[in-house]
Amino acid sequence: MFEPRIVGFTCNWCTYAGADLAGTSRIQYPPNIRIIRVMCTGRINPEFILKAFKRGADGILIGGCHIGDCHYLEGNYKARNRYMLLKKLIEQFGIEPERLRFEFISASEGNKFANVVKEMTEEIRKLGPLNWGGGKKE
């Protein structure tokens, strides 16, 4: 069975902490996701997303604070705006936009984190591998 490879970019104050809470609460979810911690989703350079797809990610999850709660006031607004354009862009590159997902998950939402990962893993499994292949010369 195809096992999707999912990369998560989560902010230190909300989603990373929410993922930790899922752990402390022993809420189980599929092991397909590997998380990279950033201080704020506003730190996420769109180049990271494209690099991740290029390197073999089948799906990418961006997790940040709820709107209005960003630890750094405005980071998640910027991240959300970038995400909106990125979704359009990756579709033009032939990548299904469902492969890139932005969720607002707070530090107290361990359950939500686990559910999002479960859901996303299955969704990506149905979409199949991206197999970007590095775009090598033909």
Binding site: N45, P46, E47, N81, R82, M84, L85, L86, L89
Partner: peptide, 8 residues
């Protein structure tokens, strides 16, 4: 990607 980020 960089311009997309800056504009957004």
């Amino acid at each position: 990607a960089k311009m997309l980020s800056a504009l957004s």
